[in-house]
Amino acid sequence: MKLAFSTGGTTPDAPLDPRFGRASAFLVLDLETKEFDLIDNGQSVGAAQGAGIQAAQRLVRADVKGLVTGHCGPKAFQVLNSAGIDVYYSNAGTIREALEDFENGKLSLSSGADVRGHWS
């Protein structure tokens, strides 16, 4: 299963970006092989509107099954939810810490957006 983390960095030790739609990248980790890839989200960082919608489609195309991020707005959540991507909110400092929390069952599956659009 592939799990995506919102981030501004390029490695598992990079900070987890609390924003979803306007994070500059997603680190996608294959939980079985422990290999990771980066998805560039730079186009959404400067989008006039709909950054979260655009970012969510990137995850759909990358065949991601779960997302760990700080917060998610209603439109992005709708796309993720419709595509069957599980969303987990975390306030961990780094991707590695967020992953540990995920593996230890400390992150709970969210049932909806936790912020309004354009919150950050």
Binding site: A47, Q49, G50, A51, I53, Q54, S82, A83
Partner: peptide, 15 residues
């Protein structure tokens, strides 16, 4: 250009 459409695997959402 306005991200009003989101394509999933076999469907598209409209905003």
């Amino acid at each position: 250009a306005f991200n009003a459409l989101a394509t999933l695997k076999e469907s598209t959402l409209v905003f």
